[in-house]
């Protein structure tokens, strides 16, 4: 489904601020796999997401989605295959437009947009049904401007809009981080339900270790642009947060030791 091969990315190359974000990353997601990604700041989590979405291009290496090499495609061209939910609840929706107009835009993901009416009665019924699954009562507010919704509601709507057209890959970029704990829990639960229902191949970045363990079928940990831990469903289910922290310290410590030795 998603195949990232030998991807390397350096920011500000050739300057004093040079920073290696990804070092020869290899990551392959099978169809229906739901991978959670954790790691400290600057570990390369977001870069991996941005390389997949097309917002960034790798210095070297390839990105393949559904067997198609998309490395050279811009973000809007890849949008046909990739659904995204951003960290900022404001980022995934258009505030001045109504709920149904936002959904109509999402409904046409990656298609050629012409002069057909954006919202039709048939689409509206479909949107209503989809919104019911969120259990937020939004199905009764189709004509409300999205800017009037709360952060949690907007993020739930973004999640729905990113997924209901069944993208090949779903990218979640710390999409619960900006919400209060209650709303975060709600969006987390919705994420699990929606991914399950549509069998979506998913890559989710999170800062929250508990969430990383609770959601998904596989967990990877990143540090300084490398994948330092890759747990399958079996191993992941036996992990606790303290285990993860311990594992992280161990691997990080080893990395630091190696470097000290080399110097």
């Amino acid at each position: 489904m998603l195949e990232i091969k030998n991807v390397h990315k350096t920011f500000f190359a050739g300057t004093v601020n040079e920073r290696v974000a990804l070092q020869e990353i290899n990551l392959s997601l099978a169809a229906g796999e739901f991978v959670t990604v954790i790691g400290s700041n600057g570990a390369g989590k977001s870069t991996i997401l941005n390389i997949t979405s097309g917002k960034l291009r790798p210095d070297s290496g390839t990105v393949t989605i559904d067997g198609r090499d998309v490395t050279r495609l811009a973000d809007y061209q890849r949008a046909r295959f990739v659904g995204r939910v951003f960290q900022d609840p404001m980022a995934g929706t258009s505030p001045e437009m109504t709920i149904e107009q936002n959904m109509a835009i999402a409904y046409e993901r990656g298609k050629r947009r012409g002069l057909a009416p954006g919202v039709t009665r048939k689409k509206r019924e479909f949107f209503r049904e989809e919104l019911k699954s969120l259990e937020l009562g939004l199905e009764n507010r189709l004509k409300a401007k999205v800017g009037l919704l709360s952060g949690g509601q907007r993020q739930a709507l973004s999640l729905l809009m990113a997924t209901f057209s069944s993208p090949s890959i779903l990218l979640l970029d710390e999409h619960t981080a900006a919400l209060d704990p209650q709303r975060a829990a709600l969006v987390s639960r919705l994420t699990a339900e929606i991914v399950e229902r549509h069998h979506l191949t998913t890559l989710m970045v999170t800062h929250n270790m508990e969430q990383a363990l609770q959601l998904g079928t596989r967990l990877i940990m990143m540090h300084e642009g490398r994948i330092i831990l890759d747990l399958d469903r079996e191993q992941k289910s036996r992990m606790t947060v303290p285990d993860l922290l311990h594992e992280f310290e161990k691997i990080k410590g080893a990395a630091v030791d190696d470097r000290t030795m080399l110097q």
């Binding site: 809007y76 949008a79 995204r84 835009i105």
Partner: peptide, 23 residues
Amino acid sequence: HTDLGLSLQATGDNEQMIRSFGV
């Protein structure tokens, strides 16, 4: 209010969003 027109509206309102839907 057509598909194309909605994408035009969204361009002025939230560029990142409309790009993420393939426009």
